[in-house]
Amino acid sequence: MPYITTTDGVDIYYTEQGSGQPIIFSHGWPLNSDAWALELKVFADAGYRAIAHDRRGHGRSGKTYTENDMDHYAKDLSELVEALDLHDVIVVGHSTGGGEVVRYAARYGNGRVAKVVTVGAVPPLMLKTEDNPEGAPIEVFDGLREGVLGDRSQFFKELAVPFFGGNRDGSDASQGLYDEFWREGMEMNGAAAYDCITAFSETDQTEDLRALEVPVFLAYGDDDQIVPIDAASKKAVGLVKNGTLKVYPDAPHGIHGAFQKELDKDILDFIAQ
């Protein structure tokens, strides 16, 4: 399996398919690069070099005890891009991965990043504060922390349902989808699972969004039960210089089914412009 080793000694797993302009997919919490298995084929078939990696502490990457934060996630992505000598890169991030690619593009992407895509992403800030009343209260994230420190296996089984909208009438989320979510979640180590909650909920990325110079496509499901849209993409699109927001009716936070098919087509259209 292919790896790079970061300057602070963490092995980062990645996988790739196809050739052409590079497109990198960054996964959400608590998932790993397997969440992008379909996209790797779809975008490789469309003529792109499709790449996905496991964030530190997740999947097959090094099981880190410290430095599970947005700064290190973005730096790891930068070191992967440099190790593969990628240019004219499209970066796509889902949920926490959206925060990762936004910080990467803002801090390291000048001259390398061509476009940014986020899906149900966490920027600018998920946490409710005096300046961000649309965010979720700290008790929500404390509950997630309790989940990963308690019966983590059962916690991920239960979290999968609202993640994919399985608690809504007419949902086509399958048991297999829930099982895969559980499997990927259980491949994280405890410290990374716990610390990443702070990373995705309390990292203010307002200035990262303002720093983006390239076109940005922001996708969001209007039935997202995980990341509050009013604190996230609806604010983010007003902070970037060249952004387009598309809200998908009845779509959940997790990418699957009809939402996934429409989203992938829209991303292909966006990067072809």
Score class of each variant (00 low, 15 high):
Pro2Leu: 01
Ile4Lys: 00
Ile4Asn: 04
Thr6Phe: 03
Gly9Arg: 04
Tyr13Met: 08
Tyr14Lys: 07
Glu16Asp: 01
Ser19Asp: 13
Ser19Ala: 15
Ser19Cys: 11
Asn32Ala: 02
Asn32Trp: 02
Ala37Asp: 04
Lys41Cys: 10
Phe43Asn: 06
Ala44Ser: 14
Asp45Ile: 03
Ala46His: 12
Gly47Trp: 02
Tyr48His: 06
Ile51Trp: 01
His53Met: 00
Asp54His: 04
Ser61Pro: 12
Gly62Met: 12
Thr66Met: 09
Thr66Tyr: 08
Asp71Asn: 14
Tyr73Ile: 01
Lys75Val: 01
Lys75Asn: 05
Glu79Pro: 06
Glu79Phe: 05
Glu79Asp: 05
Glu82Val: 09
Ala83Met: 07
Asp85Tyr: 03
His87Pro: 08
Asp88Thr: 04
Gly97Leu: 10
Gly99Leu: 08
Gly99Val: 09
Glu100Met: 05
Glu100Thr: 10
Glu100Trp: 02
Val101Gly: 02
Val102Cys: 11
Arg103Leu: 09
Ala105Gln: 06
Ala106Tyr: 04
Gly109Trp: 03
Gly109Ile: 00
Asn110Ile: 02
Arg112Glu: 10
Val113Glu: 01
Ala114Gln: 08
Val119Ser: 01
Val119Tyr: 05
Ala121Ser: 15
Pro123Thr: 05
Pro124Ser: 06
Leu125Ser: 07
Met126Cys: 15
Met126Val: 13
Met126Gly: 07
Leu127Ile: 06
Thr129His: 06
Asp131Ala: 12
Gly135Gln: 03
Ile138Cys: 09
Glu139Asn: 14
Glu139Lys: 13
Glu139Leu: 13
Phe141Thr: 03
Gly143Asn: 15
Glu146Val: 11
Gly147Ala: 13
Leu149Met: 07
Gly150Trp: 13
Asp151His: 14
Asp151Arg: 13
Val161Gly: 08
Pro162Lys: 11
Gly165Leu: 08
Gly166Ile: 12
Gly166Thr: 12
Asn167Ile: 03
Arg168Ala: 11
Asp169Glu: 15
Asp172Asn: 13
Ala173Met: 12
Ser174Ala: 10
Tyr178Leu: 00
Asp179Thr: 11
Gly190Gln: 03
Ala191Trp: 04
Ala191Tyr: 05
Tyr194Ser: 10
Asp195Glu: 15
Ile197Glu: 03
Ser201Leu: 06
Glu202His: 11
Asp204Arg: 02
Thr206Ser: 11
Thr206Val: 12
Thr206Cys: 09
Val214Leu: 08
Leu218Val: 12
Ala219Cys: 15
Tyr220Cys: 12
Tyr220Gly: 10
Asp222Ser: 12
Asp222Cys: 05
Asp223Ser: 14
Asp224Ile: 10
Ile226His: 03
Pro228Ile: 15
Asp230Lys: 15
Ala231Gln: 01
Gly238Arg: 11
Val240Lys: 02
Lys241Gly: 12
Thr244His: 13
Leu245Pro: 11
Leu245Lys: 11
Asp250Glu: 09
Pro252Leu: 09
His253Tyr: 10
His256Ala: 10
His256Ile: 08
Glu262Asp: 07
Asp266His: 01
Phe270Pro: 12
Phe270Leu: 13
